[in-house]
Amino acid sequence: MTNKFELNVISAESKVFQGEVENVLVPGMSGDFLVLPNHAPCISSIRPGFLEFAEDVSKKHRYFVSGGIIEVINNMVSVLVDSAIDGDNVIKEDISAIISEIDVKLSTGNIRNRDDLGLRKNDLEEALKQS
């Protein structure tokens, strides 16, 4: 019985991770969700936050991703991210930089999805506390 599925984490500039994993915790746009084997096909956008997955019980990975998209199809999970930083190397300044970017966008005012950005900012501040 297969209790693993294939995961590809790809950023615009390189391949971050490729391999078999047991589960993936995804910071989805409308809430975190866990992908397990035989997950129904779905496409969702990702908000900035921590992407966590486990190759097995002892081998866990954690990346900070700055937004992107996930596609789940026939036990093939592809995560396309703008950028991914290994969880251990996350620098608080990086996150702070993204927050200040959002602040600028919020202040310019011509953004339709103000609420979204505000939520994203909250998420990031949460992530900042976690790291």
């Binding site: 779905c42 496409i43 969702s44 992107g68 998209i69 396309l80």
Partner: peptide, 22 residues
């Protein structure tokens, strides 16, 4: 993917507006 119908989260339009610029 020809026989797969996807679940979208949030809805298709919103994802499209997000993903197409990307």
């Amino acid at each position: 993917a020809s026989n797969v119908s996807f679940n979208f989260e949030p809805d298709e339009d919103e994802i499209l507006n997000e993903i197409i610029p990307k």
